[in-house]
Simulated assay, not measured.
Amino acid sequence: MADRFYAHLFTRMPEVESLFRGDFVKQKEMFATMLASTVRSLSNYESFSQLAQMLVQSHARFALSEVQMTNAAHSLEAALHDVMEGKLTPEEESAWTRAIVKLTSTMVTR
């Protein structure tokens, strides 16, 4: 999932690839861990809010715009489609889309 997310993200926004200069394997592991934690917390507003706040803080230095986060959301949705290969029901796809939009919209710098 992480590989597919970053492939889509760098295709949509090649200019951000230079932000990932460090240990990219570790970055993908952190992404996967945070994604799994976020999915598990979706039914618990307090847990989700705490995770979202952690993401906001860890990404604050990037001053992410709505356009960038929309591109990230679309990249995550595309990665999900790649990994699931059409196995999501319309209800599952809708739930994922809502969750992705909810998460990424909290990260926009206002």
Rank of each mutant, 00 (worst) to 15 (best):
S49T: 00
V67H: 07
Q50D: 08
E85S: 06
L9K: 10
M34F: 14
S65K: 11
M13R: 14
F20L: 04
I100G: 13
K102Q: 12
S18K: 14
S65R: 11
V101Q: 09
T97K: 13
R21P: 01
M54Y: 02
V83F: 01
W96C: 14
A60P: 09
K28R: 03
F10R: 12
R4I: 00
T89H: 01
Y45T: 14
Q50K: 14
H8I: 07
A63H: 15
V25E: 05
E91W: 01
N71D: 15
S47G: 07
M30K: 07
V25Q: 09
D3T: 08
R21H: 12
I100F: 01
V39W: 06
T38G: 12
K102P: 00
A73M: 09
S43H: 10
M84S: 15
K26N: 11
M54H: 08
T70Y: 04
S18Y: 02
L88S: 09
A78C: 11
F31M: 08
F10Q: 09
P14T: 12
M54D: 10
F5Y: 10
E92C: 05
R12I: 04
A52T: 01
M84W: 00
V25A: 04
L64Y: 13
L76Y: 07
F48R: 00
E15M: 05
G86F: 04
R12T: 14
T38K: 03
F10G: 15
A60T: 08
T104P: 07
E93Q: 14
F62C: 05
M34I: 04
L55A: 10
F62I: 07
E93L: 13
L42G: 05
T33F: 02
T104M: 13
